[in-house]
Amino acid sequence: MKLIYFLFLGIVVISCKKKDQPFVITYPEYFPSPVYQFIDNTPTKSRFELGRKLFYDPILSEDNTVSCATCHAQTHGFADHGVSFSQGVHGLLGNRNAPTVFNLLWSPYFNWDGGVNHLEIFSLAPITNPVEMNESIENVLLKLNNTKVYRDAFKFAYGTEEITDQLMYRAISIFLAVIVSDGSKYDDFRQGKVSFTDEENAGYQLFKNNCASCHSEPLFTNFSFQNNGLDSVFVDLGRARITQESSDIGKFKVPTLRNIELTYPYMHDGRFMTLNMVLNHYDSGIKHSPTLSSSLSQGIHFTSQERASLIAFLKTLTDYKLLDNAKFRE
């Protein structure tokens, strides 16, 4: 009887289930509820690995030279390697600074202007942008379907013979969704594992009083669009490019401050190389225009000692575990 039971159980397992493993995405309890819901796209080990393979594969670009990781490097907090504008195919330069791609599970929209409305189609923009990967989706699918490793991987992960763009996007989404940055000193502090130094503590208070209304904890952004006074004449319209509203001219999505130490240069056009330059801007560089964030009209001023404290706090947001995590490596 025991044998029959195991036999039946074996049949059930073999007949219906692939040998894939579920993939649990973890994050701290003080994080909000995720935005991306994995509808028809349950995370599994094979889907995650497939998404990772796609993320690191230049096959997505026109001449097979540029991958997602080219401009979103794990070593640099999944931003580019210290450049203002990234190089795409044929050495062409983009016109906005490559954003980080961690904690996207909580992002309601994507890119500096929020023009992309869903994690699953986020990768469409860089693949087809002429100055990034400059490849058509049609051709990407042709290349993937002509590659046995991908045919086998998609079949195993999603159970289909044909690789569609939908499945490609879904696999990449799972990889991106798994890149959670929650291992910084700040997180250890939140979880009561470590204490801040006096300087970090002082910086944390300054941060809460002066920065947190936009760079809200625990993701260090409230995902709003703000004009932070960089310009009074706008070459890049920012959010208004999407909404066509004059009230959105010069506004860009508030970026996360997690891993900010690593993700220089700063701002949508990468104009500031150092955090000190950023703080100089908030202190004395604010340019006035009709859409300027009301909380910045007087600037934000710190003494040099306060500035040092604030920067010490910002460095507690660096997530060395993220940088070292072998799971995210090629």
């Binding site: 992309v116 189609i121 087809t128 989706i137 569609t164 763009d165």
Partner: peptide, 12 residues
């Protein structure tokens, strides 16, 4: 499918 070229990449 976006392969039909009928979806705006930058403004969903």
């Amino acid at each position: 499918s976006t392969a039909n070229g009928m979806f705006w990449s930058w403004n969903s």
